[in-house]
Write a protein that binds this DNA or RNA. Sequence first.
RNA 1: GCCCCCAUAGUCCAAUGGCAGAGACAGAGGACUUAAAAUCCUUCCAGUAUCGGUUCGAGUCCGAUUGGGGGCACCA
Length: 823
Amino acid sequence: MSTEREHAAYDFAYVQEKWLPIWDTLEPFKSGRADDARPKKYVLDMFPYPSGDLHMGHAEAYALGDVIARYWIQKGFNVMHPIGWDAFGLPAENAAIKRNEDPRIWTYENIATQKASMRRYACSFDWDRVFNTCDPEYYKWNQWLFTKLHERGLAYRKNSAVNWCPGCQTVLANEQVVAGLCERCDTAVTKKKLNQWYFKITDYADRLLDDMSELEGKWPEKVLMMQRNWIGRSQGANVQFVIEGRTEPVTIYTTRPDTLYGATFMVVAADSALAAELAHGSAVEPEFTAYLEKIKAASDIDRLATDRPKSGVDLKRFAINPVNGEKLPIWASDYVLADYGTGAIMAVPAHDQRDLDFAKAMKLPVRVVVETGEEDPQATGIATTGDGKIINSGSLNGLSKADAIAAINKQLEADGLGKSARNYRLRDWLVSRQRYWGTPIPIVHCEKCGEVAVPDSELPLLLPDAKGLDLKPKGQSPLAAATEWVNTKCPKCAGPAMRDTDTMDTFVDSSWYYLRYPSSTNATEPFNRADIDTWLPVDQYVGGVTHAILHLLYSRFFTKVLHDMRMLSFTEPFTRLLNQGMVVMDGSAMSKSRGNLVRLSDELENHGVDAIRLSMVFSGPPEDDVDWSDVSPSGSVKFLSRAWRLSGDVTSASGVDFTTGEISLRKATHKALNDAAFAVESFRFNVAIARVMELVNATRKAIDSGCGPADPAVREATEAIAIMLSLVAPFTSEEMWERLGHKPAIATAGWPIVDPKLLVADEVEAVIQINGKIVDRMNVSPSISDTEFESAALALPTVIAALSGAAPKKVIARAPKLVNIVL
RNA sequence: GCCCCCAUAGUCCAAUGGCAGAGACAGAGGACUUAAAAUCCUUCCAGUAUCGGUUCGAGUCCGAUUGGGGGCACCA
């Protein structure tokens, strides 16, 4: 039946309503049927946090992930493109407190909302694999993995000065402190001495760093750079200094052992145990204690100010320089960090700016031991850190920096006074949180047996009901108030014991979720090895750069741990990574308070799903930010209706023999298919769309003023356009496909085979240059040889005239494009 | 302070070391129309931030400078 509506202008709202139920029945994105012989591909979008409905950022991310997933399906792969929800976390808990209800309600409501929106957005997800991290069926395995890490000594508790967010009333991992502020709520982070659970990620620092070589060229350079920076490996030496009046020597860490003769004092971190010990019982103790109180009160923000004047206390104690026996005064200062290296340094003011600033403030001597050709640091106040000739340094004199480092390391090692050493900026991952809405830590504290892991048979250890618990942040986990839950018996001795009341950082949940999708309903193991071997590692991961060090580093760590546990055969989880940019408005991030928030639902209402997807993908390279003020969704609508109209103009029958079609349009079609595929595979989606636009223009022209609508080439071109558009405009392309006489779903129609013969032009216009300047052009066969090409060029009248009998110095022929004659 | 990335038309962006423009937005003009919308057609616009180098040939490679963005930051 031909309704009036079908002949009317392209109606996106009608088309959207029409196809959704049909796709629900066809389920074109189901992956991994048993009889599926196609090669496999795992395309993964970072799973969302269910805070409200989808926004513009989601719309961009899922549009991009969809292009990739849908492309590989068209290319004949069995694609798994799953989705789930990262559903534990503070926003749910805060909403629950505000609304005075269980966080489960808010969370599962939002999941339902987002899921419905994703369906309307026509995301190519395999809906059979969905799970939420707050489902007990999922977090059971979080707990199981925790106990395995505990068994291996990779999960441990320690007392330490930790990052504390007064806003969220919980501790934070180092990775969650951004410029001294809480990543989530922007409150200034303070320090607190607490006993907390850690994952020993530092054990994996070298492997996390070194294995990045296999990600080179497959992950954005920026992310690799950020991770390298974050791990922050430094190569140096540990050197022992004898302390007067102390039996044990003190070890310092330095990256510049070549400047050992230039040390004029020693500095220990004021908040270290060593500083307290050195000050203890001496005349300076009151002064030291006062100083310590002062710096403890300072926030991280104060600490981070780089131009802060140096401060410290002279401990009136002395260290002996092992190379020359000099007595060096020992100072305590907050510019030395207690938890990096050994918490003590040798100060070489001539060649380290911080030491120089301190020396100037405290009127301590400066001694140059490297001649760099720069001015005297003492006079300029600028430390000289470059290479040069070593001076004033005994046997090292005359050596270069590198040679001196090698020589002194060798000497120190021989004398038993030191050796080369490495240090990392990376700290162990603090995983306990004092909040309710997370995975309970599966540990029981028994007076007799100590820390005892909850046995596998008792997992999942369910979160107690929120009813009756006060979820308000108060610095202690709300679970502590669930006395019935807390008081238990020891799994080992059956004596009275108490449960750990903290929950896990939600980044634990997301560190292994990608392993769960292939067997998302498995009740007996976190993931099935056979399924893993089939699908993993993830072929293509898509997500925001905000996770460059948090989630992506933790996931790499988990993968390596699981590999060591012989549960995985690979050591890197994500083979390729694409980081999409943000969606911004007028150059800045969208926010309600800034008043530049664009609502996704409004945009979808006004322009339709396909136009929004197209605008996102066409706006520029995927890793660039999309500035919504620069894009034209109405331009996208215009293009889509232009493409759609072609499908109504085709008059040849479905199945017509394309090979009889008009040749120039056929060539344009095959070139577009070829170029668009290449562009998609190299993440230049905007270029791929430009190729489709070109073909739409060419087809329009062919219909209106060329071979006419009945030519088979017009059908071939229009079908190719529909299939290429299916990556980004699922509704429009499906509608075109039907008008062209095909059955749904176009998503599985298959990418047309490109005929290489149609990619070759009959003739190429070659450029003739003299001294790099264009003087003439000529048409040549694309298969012309360099020598033929060269002689044809030299025979051109313009060239003969220009040469006027002289022989060219050199002729460069690049058949069939260009000849350059050098005179 | 250290490290990384980027700079092409009014705007967003293309160009395996080989004719700077693929595509789009905005602008201008025209066709169709009683008119408008829609549609179709045509058209305008830079010599690639600056300086230097390598090369037969540089937007592309190398070095410096300027401007913008990002990461780390008292990590010895």
